[in-house]
Design a protein around this nucleic acid. Structure first.
Lengths: 299, 299
DNA sequence: TAGAGTGTATAGGCATCACCTATGGATATC
DNA sequence: GATATCCATAGGTGATGCCTATACACTCTA
């Protein structure tokens, strides 16, 4: 499978026939036909239903389409824009954080640093784990607040604490006890966090290991939206304890799970072999103090 | 440029020498050397500084690294997981919304539908525009709330309203007038929304067209985090009017821009040629009513 | 109904490219 | 000075992507 085959594939889906697609991409029809077959062979799936008047994508073909488009767009962007990727690290404190930590930790930690160091320039990058770690390796940020152990030798993970994940349900809902068993959640409609986030994947893994298959009715990309939908009674969810401690959503109630509790490891990622600036150390200390305090713990 | 060359490139950066990288990827060193040169030629940039004991990536090489990794990861995921892309549309009301609309519109619109139709099952997908449109084309959702005109012939865009974008600044900040000129923002530290979101890109385009280069100090992926950082005094930002209307962040103040104002088009996307269910029509009507009301307008 | 047009797949040939081994030049180390 | 390590260049070979030609199937029109 290579980029050209993906381009041929997309052109064929869009054109509806191999002949028209071949004209578009500027090769002969039999060549395109062969390349499509080659792609099907290498992926092990049939991508098209062949009809007398053209071809329509199969289910697999339709699943491939957005992904092929994404790869092609990235490659095209690369060829056109790589020269503009010169960066100068601006600012003095350059940190990253993932979206399921940033809104709860960053404001206080940054306020603390800014107060101690007047005039300090702050650069913040909020993005998914993979992206903040890349920014870290690219020297765009100096450290990153994440909630998973990275598996890259170039990154040092300073583990600060394991944070518990708790259940959030509509306040109007009545549970049998203050702490929940996992089985209490079995038939509840569930609002899940998109698997683009580590947290979403961590919750999935926790459930799978215990044979719980949630009935997912909503899939969101922001914890704040999850809370709003829960407060509407649309379902239950699992969120970090710091969300319960900081967010003020009147229609939501939080419960701990009984027995073995799901946790996520909170920590700071650093690029190995690089000097740590004093201001970044201040930031790390502020984060550490915050995580050790009661401020981010659920009552 | 093709995927294999990118894999060779990444292997070389990670190994630090062509010889070791060649051993890793299983080709001869001269072949790898040639392919790297070929990649440099096709991209028009030098990717490595050649040292006596290995090679280090140039600035351009370092910029390419995360992007090459992304493309390779996507391609690998594709080859391994394409067969698992079978979906069944569950539920009766299946809608999508982008993260910069969902928290402000979805709760009320869904509550309205659920109240009118007891027992109605709701499936919600919150994701970036590209992804909700893909879910729409894949028949995973029936309609989607978005803020841009899609350029896909298979999608009908029902335009509901142009929404104004407003400036949010720390409440403690003093402006010369109630409405701001664009030049008022010229030297302010700016907290921008990541370009993964349409909104982030729309704001970028608006500024570029008027020769305004914001001094970006923070880049976030959630509007709620932006508001928190603004309230800390870290900078100003541009957010949708509905954010100003709904979010309660005590340290933030909102202003309109004078003259030609930035707007984003709000609407509902539908898959052409597909029947619209009654419950989806109810939802669309509820959204329409909500957008027409004062509830999502800034005072 | 026959012929024309449209569409995909297969076959064979040719040019290009990715790979190999061999070699050269530069630098570092002992 | 000899050896080891490193990247680049040269030439040869096999694989691959491309071409044209052709076959087969289906649809449409006169």
């Amino acid at each position: 499978m290579d980029i050209r085959q993906l381009a041929y594939f997309v052109a064929t889906v869009e054109a509806g026939t191999v002949s028209r697609a071949a004209a578009r991409v500027g090769v002969a029809q039999p060549s395109l036909s062969q390349q499509l077959k080659s792609l099907e062979d290498s992926l092990g799936v049939r991508l098209f239903d062949r009809l007398p008047r053209g071809m329509t994508p199969t289910e697999a073909g339709r699943a491939l389409l957005p992904r092929a488009r994404r790869i092609l767009a990235e490659a095209a962007d690369l060829e056109q824009n790589l020269k503009r990727e010169s960066k100068s690290t601006a600012g003095i404190l350059a940190v990253g954080a993932i979206p399921t930590i940033a809104p709860y930790v960053l404001p206080h930690a940054i306020a603390s640093v800014v107060e101690a160091r007047r005039g300090c320039e702050v650069t913040v990058r909020e993005d998914l784990t993979e992206n903040v770690l890349e920014a870290l390796l690219d020297c765009q940020i100096e450290c990153a607040l994440i909630a998973t152990q990275p598996d890259d030798d170039r990154i040092a993970f300073e583990h600060l604490r394991d944070e518990e994940l708790v259940v959030v349900a509509p306040a109007s809902m009545r549970w049998a006890s203050a702490e929940l068993r996992l089985t209490d959640l079995r038939d509840q409609p569930t609002i899940s966090l998109h698997e683009m986030h580590c947290l979403g994947r961590q919750v999935d893994v926790f459930c799978e290991l215990r044979r719980l298959r949630p009935r997912v009715v909503c899939k969101m990309t922001q914890l704040s939206t999850i809370l709003k939908l829960v407060s509407l009674g649309l379902g239950v969810s699992v969120v970090p304890e710091m969300t319960a401690a900081v967010a003020r959503e009147p229609g939501c109630a939080y419960s701990r799970l009984r027995g073995e509790r799901p946790v996520r490891p909170l920590g700071i990622a650093w690029r190995k072999g690089r000097r740590r600036s004093a201001v970044a150390m201040n930031f790390a200390t502020a984060v550490q103090g915050l995580l050790a305090s009661d401020r981010l713990r659920m009552r």
